[in-house]
Design a protein around this nucleic acid. Structure first.
Lengths: 220, 220
DNA sequence: CGGCGCCTATCTCAAAAGGGGTAGATCGGC
DNA sequence: GCCGATCTACCCCTTTTGAGATAGGCGCCG
């Protein structure tokens, strides 16, 4: 394939450039994305945000065609930014980006209306394709994520309560400790833990935590 | 402090540019670093590697002044690259970079002779300072890492065997399972687990795994 | 209204994990 | 040669965890 074909995708002379905001807490990543996008004749980086709060503000101020959002950011994470921006701008086109596939929050973002999802280790061409797709209101997802989405559908999902218990489980708390923190009896805590073990197909709490980490259900 | 002072550090007209190789599996990060470095009058990116094997090869071919190395890469991780490059070139100046502080492998790299360590979310000026320091054979470490190094000294370290047991622990294995896999008795496995709990100051195996994750002693 | 899912709570019983201490074998360094 | 660290292994005893079953209260939806 030729690079020229990718660089000048739909029209030889674009009517207007795709206006993009970048939101990522790593200066290096912002510079890298900016360098890639600014080489394109049909794209323009209009602002950069270093955290979630800034991302929300800058979206309101600039109303870009696309915002590229890191999932994990200080102050306000990707999920929260997606919620807040879409509440104010229902037609906002958001492309969520993260380091790890398998992060459960991807699905939270997509189900809340983010238009696309991208892995940070994607090649440049894929990043550009994704931005162009999202800018035209077409959905985009890395293939590795699309397949995970299907796997995930099959598996039973945890309730909110169970996710809370799982978080404490991952911190190494005992049943008694979990019960105290959630103001329930130890017996009930055990009931929740048993449900978690069943749903995650784990034999022990420690294995459940390992599975939860792999699936991105909990964070450190 | 002025930016000019940082940009033109020692000499107004550098006798020769600092030749740098970048090794990171994320194209975006490579582009970002390249963009930052190529803006400097005293630096030059001579090659880029997308994995550990490539990094080793390119070092041998180009013999740069500094190689910036991601800790986690496909095929050969940062620790292995540090070992192999230093075996062939004992005076190589390597700057290790990673996303997370608290990664135990940082200390493995540094103790094996890497000259500096840097967090990926560092500001541009810090990245440049680090590269200049390392190029002059001066050590460099992010302040957050320097403080962790001290904390770490105080705490007891795990033996090789214990690290092996800890890895299995983190995968959710039972004592019986651990014993089978390591060809030791269950009683011995319990002895190791008890030692781990004591050293990590944890009450339960699950808490020990949580601590191990935080300290980067195990990986998923 | 009748389910259905969720949270709560209880019971019993077996298995696993954890706390304490002891001790032989091996290996490397002072 | 002796000491210390490590790996191995065992003892006893208590606490925690996990399997299985059951059930009331509550809110939501067809």
């Amino acid at each position: 394939m030729s690079a020229a074909q990718i660089s000048a995708p739909t029209a030889a002379a674009p009517a207007h450039k795709i206006r993009v905001i970048l939101a990522d807490d790593h200066p290096v990543v912002r510079d890298g994305l900016a360098a890639i996008l600014n080489r394109q004749p049909d794209m323009e980086v209009v602002a950069e945000a270093a955290d979630g709060e800034e991302a929300t503000e800058l979206y309101n101020r600039h109303q870009p065609d696309v915002m590229v959002l890191d999932l994990r950011m200080p102050k306000r994470d990707g999920v929260a930014v997606v919620q807040m921006v879409l509440a104010a701008h229902p037609h906002a086109r958001l492309l969520v980006m993260t380091t790890y596939d398998g992060d459960e929050d991807i699905f939270r973002c997509l189900s809340q209306g983010a238009k696309g999802y991208l892995l940070k280790d994607s090649p440049r061409t894929e990043i550009l394709s994704a931005i162009r797709a999202v800018s035209e209101d077409r959905p985009y997802a890395s293939s590795s994520v699309a397949s995970k989405a299907l796997q995930r559908m099959a598996k039973p999902s945890l309730t909110q309560r169970e996710l809370g218990v799982l978080q404490l489980l991952a911190e190494g708390r005992s049943n008694k400790d979990i019960a105290r923190r959630l103001s329930i009896t130890e017996g009930t805590a055990k009931t929740h833990v048993k449900a978690i073990l069943t749903k995650l197909d784990a034999i022990s709490r420690t294995e459940a935590v390992a599975v939860a980490h792999k699936r991105g259900l909990v964070r450190l």
